[in-house]
């Protein structure tokens, strides 16, 4: 089998460490090499699951936008901005999921859906500041739960530094 993407990226990291870094005399060049190694590590972390993550993420955002349609259609939220938001969400989810597994197409779909989600979250923060609308607050936390999953995914240099204990807690939360 030929070296796949991850194996090749690991090979680049190894070449950086074995062949290049020992030859670098300046601290600046060594720092740049370290940055490259970490950049590659973050690419490796998302390489295999990139399409799956986008497909499942898009599916979840569609579900949240559908929930938003229900919440903002309730009489309590019935006003002009809510109606505009309902229309925005309906339009976003009316576009069928892309059939392709190309990362660029899935990313474009993700951005379109997340643009609608952004507007929903801003509206929910307005509601949260003024009342204790139960369905709206439940939706708010569902959205944050989804975004939290995305924010904790992959690899970051913070994970071995400032966020080390935080990421350990996150992993134990996932296990539960």
């Amino acid at each position: 089998m030929k070296p796949d993407g991850i194996t090749s990226l690991r090979g680049i990291q190894a070449a950086l460490a074995d062949a290049l870094v020992p030859e670098l005399s300046s601290a600046y060049a060594q720092d740049a090499a370290q940055t490259l190694t970490m950049l590659i590590e973050s690419l490796v972390a998302g390489w295999d699951t990139a399409a799956e993550d986008l497909v499942s993420g898009n599916r979840e955002v569609r579900r949240l936008l559908a929930e938003a349609v229900a919440v903002f259609s309730l009489p309590a939220a019935g006003n002009e901005p809510a109606a505009a938001l309902v229309k925005l969400c309906e339009d976003a989810i009316a576009v069928p999921p892309v059939a392709s597994l190309r990362i660029s197409e899935l990313t474009a779909e993700s951005e379109s859906l997340r643009a609608a989600l952004e507007k929903v979250l801003v509206a929910l923060e307005d509601i949260a500041a003024g009342s204790a609308d139960v369905p709206a607050m439940a939706l708010r936390w569902s959205i944050y739960a989804h975004l939290r999953g995305a924010a904790g995914a992959g690899w970051s240099f913070w994970d071995v530094a400032s966020f080390r204990e935080r990421m350990v807690r996150l992993k134990s939360e996932h296990k539960r």
């Binding site: 940055t35 970490m38 950049l39 973050s42 944050y144 904790g152 970051s156 966020f163 935080r166």
Partner: peptide, 23 residues
């Protein structure tokens, strides 16, 4: 600069912290 690309790929952990603080 690869640092610029690299930093851009690390925004998600800051989002995690932001949501922790909001929660």
């Amino acid at each position: 600069s690869p640092l610029m690309a690299f930093l851009g790929r690390n925004v998600n952990r800051l989002e995690l912290e932001i949501m922790d603080l909001l929660e």
